[in-house]
C-alpha cells in the first residue's frame, strides 16, 4: 500500500485520461439508462431528446418498488447467482486442478470436450433441458435454476481456472509433494491461494453469467415468487406498451448490485499476491 503513494506521483496522465474517456464511452448506454429512469414516460420518445432527465421519477420508482416484486426477484437473483457460483467453484476447482496437474490418456480431448459443451446454441437445448428438469422434479424451482446455472458456467470456469493453475509453477507442487503434502492439500492450500485473482475472475464470470441468464430461467420458473430479476424485467414489457422509464429504472436497480460487489472484490486483482509470492 505504501507503494501506491510513490506510484501516484508517477501517474501517467495520458493513460489515465484515456482510461477516463474510454470508461465514459463504455458507460454511455448506462448513463442513458439512468437518464431514462429519472424522467417522465413521454420523455423517452420526445424530440429533440433532452440530454438531462426531467426528474419526474418518484411515481416510476414507487410503481416498480411497491407494485412489483422487484426486491423479491433481486433477492432470488442474488441467491441463485451466489449459490450457483459456489457450486460451480466446488466442482470446477478440483476439475481444473486435475486437468492442470495430472497426466492421463486423452487429456487434450477431454479438455476440448469440456469446452465443446459450449458449442451447441443454448436455444436448441432449451426443450430437452426443460424435459429433463421436469423429470427430475426441478421445474418451477430455484434449485433447478441454481443447478443449471452452475453447470452452464462450469465449462468456462474449468478452462479459466486451468489456465490460471497452469501459471503456478509445478515446482511448488513437487516441493510440497516431496514434503508429503496430499494433492488435495496442495490444491486447496497452495495452488488456489496463489491463483486468487484468477479464481476471483472465474467467480465473477460465474456470478454475472447467472445474474444475466434469462432463457432457461424463464422456461423453468413460472410462479411469480420464484422469478429472478431478468424475468421480472421482461415482464414489464407489455403486449401493447413498453413503459420505458419503469424498465430502465428496474434495469438500473438490477445493474447496481454486481457493480458495487465488484468495487469491493476488485482489490484482490491488485494485491499482486500471486506472482510475488510464487517467485519470491
Amino acid at each position: 500500500m505504501q507503494n501506491d503513494r510513490t506510484m501516484m506521483a508517477r501517474t501517467n496522465w495520458i493513460a489515465a485520461l484515456l482510461a477516463y474517456s474510454l470508461a465514459f464511452v463504455v458507460a454511455i448506454p448506462f448513463l442513458w439508462m439512468l437518464k431514462s429512469a429519472l424522467e417522465s414516460p413521454a420523455a423517452a420518445t420526445a424530440y429533440p431528446p433532452a440530454l438531462l432527465p426531467d426528474g419526474a421519477f418518484i411515481e416510476t420508482f414507487r410503481t416498480i418498488l411497491f407494485e412489483t416484486r422487484l426486491f423479491h426477484w433481486l433477492l432470488n437473483s442474488f441467491l441463485v447467482s451466489t449459490i450457483s457460483t459456489l457450486v460451480a467453484l466446488s466442482i470446477g476447482i478440483p476439475a481444473a486442478y486435475g486437468l492442470s496437474r495430472f497426466n492421463f490418456r486423452h487429456k487434450g480431448l477431454m479438455t476440448l470436450s469440456i469446452l465443446g459443451t459450449q458449442m451447441m446454441p443454448p436455444i436448441v437445448l432449451i426443450i430437452p433441458l426443460y424435459t429433463t428438469f421436469i423429470k427430475l422434479g426441478l421445474a418451477d424451482s430455484m434449485v433447478g435454476v441454481v443447478i443449471a446455472n452452475a453447470a452452464f458456467s462450469l465449462p468456462v470456469m474449468v478452462w479459466m481456472l486451468k489456465t490460471v493453475f497452469d501459471g503456478v509453477p509445478f515446482e511448488i507442487d513437487e516441493a510440497a509433494r516431496i514434503d508429503g503434502a496430499s494433492w488435495i492439500y496442495i490444491a486447496a492450500r497452495i495452488v488456489v491461494p496463489l491463483s486468487l485473482p484468477g479464481v476471483i475472475a472465474a467467480s465473477i464470470f460465474s456470478f454475472l453469467n447467472a445474474w444475466d441468464e434469462f432463457m432457461l430461467a424463464r422456461t423453468l420458473l413460472r410462479t411469480v415468487d420464484q422469478w429472478v430479476g431478468t424475468i421480472g424485467l421482461s415482464s414489464l414489457m407489455g403486449e401493447y406498451v413498453t413503459p420505458w422509464n419503469q424498465i430502465m429504472a428496474t434495469a438500473l436497480i438490477f445493474t447496481l448490485p454486481p457493480v458495487i460487489l465488484f468495487l469491493f472484490v476488485q482489490k484482490y486483482f491488485v494485491s499482486g499476491l500471486s506472482a510475488g509470492a510464487v517467485k519470491g
Binding site: 445474474w211 444475466d212 431478468t230 434495469a251
Partner: peptide, 9 residues
C-alpha cells in the same frame, strides 16, 4: 457495467 446490465435492457 455492460456485463451487469441485463441484455434485454
Amino acid at each position: 457495467i455492460p456485463w451487469a446490465t441485463p441484455y434485454v435492457a
